[in-house]
């Protein structure tokens, strides 16, 4: 077996990021769905702010349909899942058919949820497939570096989302610390100045969410 090309490293990194984006936003979407049943019908507006996406939706129901399943909506969960799939499908030779199968099944389940009379039940399958996907990554991929790149992408995405959500500082710090070993394992060239700044903003007694987010966006800019 040869070495990882630059393009492949990029696909692996973004496969990690998009699959995590789907996983985390799906949980948020399901929680929001529950809130909008009877507590706060306009909760989706807050979700748009949290997710840092434009509120193009006309109502709760419009949000639930389009943000979940509309492939024309660039920010929708299905659009992000499609991007995960697009990055996975070109990586079959590295991640294996078995691993790739879980992303494929997540897409099928997402499509099934879009026409289901009980979409929240169907969406659990998407979550299950994504968790199985990461289990398969650990179990079946021998390449230390390949796993490292994907997991680095996953951890960067989670940190990015948690910073945008202004999540509890301890949770953000925990996520940040889990990202660090993955950065080393990935063997990707890291912008050390940005990494140092990220550490400063995150470990400060008063967390600087915006500063940390800006630094995070720069860590692969070398």
């Amino acid at each position: 077996m040869g070495v990882i090309t630059v393009d492949k490293a990029d696909h692996l990194y973004w496969l990690g990021r998009y699959s995590e984006r789907v996983y985390t936003t799906l949980k948020l979407y399901c929680d929001g769905y529950d809130s909008m049943l009877d507590a706060d019908e306009d909760f989706y507006k807050k979700l748009c702010v949290m997710l840092d996406i434009p509120n193009i939706y006309t109502s709760r129901d419009d949000f639930l349909q389009r943000y979940g399943y509309d492939r024309q909506d660039y920010n929708s969960i299905i659009s992000n899942l499609t991007r995960a799939y697009d990055n996975a499908i070109v990586m079959r030779d590295e991640i294996g058919t078995e691993t790739l199968g879980y992303i494929q099944m997540a897409v099928y389940s997402m499509d099934a949820a879009s026409v289901s009379s009980a979409p929240m039940i169907q969406l659990q399958k998407v979550v299950d497939h994504l968790l199985a996907f990461w289990g398969c990554v650990d179990d079946q991929i021998d390449g230390y570096c390949i796993r490292g790149i994907m997991k680095f992408g996953k951890r960067v995405e989670r940190l990015d989302l948690y910073l945008r959500f202004h999540m509890d500082p301890n949770e953000v710090r925990r996520t940040y610390r889990r990202m660090l070993p993955r950065a080393r394992e990935s063997q990707l060239p890291i912008n050390q100045t940005a990494m140092d700044a990220l550490k400063r903003y995150i470990e400060a007694p008063e967390m600087d969410y915006e500063g940390a987010l800006s630094a995070l966006l720069e860590i692969l800019n070398v």
């Binding site: 077996m1 040869g2 090309t5 393009d7 499908i89 070109v90 079959r92 030779d93 294996g96 058919t97």
Partner: peptide
């Protein structure tokens, strides 16, 4: 292409690689 690359242990490349 991708399946045979996986099974033969070959590197799957495009022209730009």
């Amino acid at each position: 292409h991708s399946y045979l690359a996986e099974l033969t242990g070959s590197v799957l490349v495009t022209g730009s690689d």
